[in-house]
Amino acid sequence: MAQDDLYRTVVLERARTPRYAGPLTGADRHGEGSNPLCGDRVKLQASVDAQGRIAAVRHETRGCAICAASADLMAERVTGQKPAHVNQLHAELVTTVETGIAPEGLGDLSVFAPLHRHRSRIRCAMLPWSALIEMLNDDKDR
């Protein structure tokens, strides 16, 4: 399957039937982000375990398919990870959407590589990640 076909398939599947959408009971972290230019909005809830790992993440996303799919794939990928690894994934995804080249190990997130040809859509994919990074950084001050 070609990269663009895989992109369309994964994005549409995750936008239509998200696996990590809805409220999170017992959440101790909250974040949100919005893009006033297109109207995308994402609210995140997460819980962090005693070892500092993200135990669970849920999202409530109102926006395009790219934003919704990105939020859902992000929630899946960061579960069980420490914030330092999340920052690394974020950096790798930024490089991927800017260059179209996904590093080995990015997994399903590599489906966003074709966005490098659609610069205006990059913000759609990155909005959930920006909200997550901000939420995790804000919690360091607690």
Score class of each variant (00 low, 15 high):
Gly107Asp: 01
Thr99Glu: 02
Gly63Leu: 03
Leu93Met: 09
Ser70Gly: 06
Arg58Leu: 07
Pro36Asn: 08
Gly105Cys: 06
Arg77Val: 01
Cys38Arg: 08
Val111Gln: 05
Leu109Lys: 13
Arg62Trp: 11
Ala113Tyr: 11
Ile101Pro: 00
Leu44Ile: 02
Ala65Gln: 06
Thr79Tyr: 02
Ala113Gln: 07
Ala69Ile: 09
Ala15His: 02
His90Leu: 03
Arg119Trp: 12
Ala71Lys: 00
Phe112Met: 07
His118Cys: 09
Thr61Glu: 03
Ile54Asn: 12
Leu115Thr: 03
Glu92Gly: 01
Asp49Phe: 14
Asp108Gly: 11
Lys82Arg: 11
Cys67Asp: 03
Leu109Arg: 09
Pro83Cys: 08
Asn87Ile: 10
Tyr20Pro: 04
Arg77Trp: 01
Val78Arg: 02
Pro103Lys: 05
Ala102Met: 00
Asp40Lys: 07
Val57Glu: 05
Arg119Gln: 14
Leu73Lys: 04
Asp40Arg: 05
Glu98Ile: 07
Ala27Cys: 02
Arg119Phe: 13
Ala46Gln: 07
Asp49Ser: 13
Gln45Pro: 00
Asn35Tyr: 03
Ala27Trp: 04
Thr25Ser: 14
Val57Tyr: 05
Thr99Cys: 10
Glu98Tyr: 03
Arg14Ile: 03
Ile54Ala: 14
Ala65Val: 06
His118Trp: 10
Gly39Cys: 07
Glu76Arg: 04
Arg121Lys: 15
His90Tyr: 11
Arg121Ala: 12
Arg29Cys: 06
